[in-house]
């Protein structure tokens, strides 16, 4: 069963098990492929395209693409860097991301990606969409201004919590995360201990009254760029 597959990422030989995705194999080899919608323990979604790599010259999502013997994967190239930067910038302008006062700052994966890719200000015009806050739940709130539609909460609630609190509704620019209830978040059975609350990469789903309890300097990405945990884990091996 476990015949080993070998392929290359940026010329480096990587071995993997059949059925793994390129991202899983890269993680094990200590190669960081940037990502946003992918989350360990959740089924891949392949929606954000931040993890775009070249497989034998064709663009593929590393989080969904299975490994295959002998494939040539490009990851850390100028061209891919430019594509990923563009995607991240578009995510920024599409919502209302005010990092300077957002309580997720320093722990936010979108912000951390922007830092890693050296994005100071997006080149696209801000769309300033009008989005709602749902603060009806006593302990959790949704600020849709910051939602990037990664679908982590949808998958976590459905597959891990077994509840299905969240679901996408609408299409295109109208697409948004809705709650499975008559009216608001308060009407769902969402609990603060749910996986769905924990997995949001940005400041869209948050526990209430936590705010800025962690000081600047002790937040997740204050000292180490996003992805460095994957890179370091391998170098320790």
């Amino acid at each position: 069963m476990s015949e080993t597959i070998t392929f290359t990422i940026d010329g480096k030989e990587v071995s993997a098990q059949p059925g793994q995705t390129i991202m899983q194999a890269a993680d094990a080899a200590g190669i960081y492929i940037p990502r946003l919608c992918a989350f360990e323990g959740l089924v891949p979604h392949g929606s954000c395209r931040v993890c775009t790599v070249m497989v034998n010259g064709r663009a593929q999502a590393a989080c969904t693409q299975p490994v295959a013997d002998g494939i040539v994967v490009e990851n850390d190239t100028e061209k891919l860097l430019a594509i990923r930067r563009d995607i991240i910038e578009m995510l920024f302008v599409e919502g209302n991301h005010y990092c300077m006062f957002c309580e997720k700052s320093g722990n936010c994966e979108l912000q951390a990606l922007a830092y890693r890719f050296g994005i100071a200000a997006p080149k696209y015009p801000y769309l300033f969409p009008k989005r709602e806050i749902d603060a009806t739940h006593p302990d959790i709130f949704i600020d849709r201004n910051r939602c990037v539609l990664c679908g982590r909460c949808v998958r976590a609630s459905r597959d891990v919590d077994g509840k299905g609190v969240f679901e996408f509704v609408g299409r295109g620019p109208q697409k948004r995360v809705a709650v499975n209830a008559e009216a608001n978040l308060a009407d769902t059975d969402l609990k603060t201990s749910d996986k769905a609350v924990e997995v949001c990469p940005v400041g869209a789903i948050l526990r209430k009254r936590v705010g800025y309890a962690v000081p600047v300097g002790r937040r997740r990405y204050d000292h180490k760029p996003i992805g460095s945990d994957i890179e370091q884990a391998a170098s320790k091996k």
């Binding site: 300077m100 006062f101 009254r209 705010g211 800025y212 309890a213 962690v214 000081p215 600047v216 300097g217 002790r218």
Partner: peptide
């Protein structure tokens, strides 16, 4: 005290974060 020279986060409702 606030974490940053401008626009820090130190003072939080009911106290301070460091």
């Amino acid at each position: 005290t606030a974490g940053k020279k401008i626009h820090g986060t130190g003072a939080i409702p009911g106290g301070i974060n460091k």
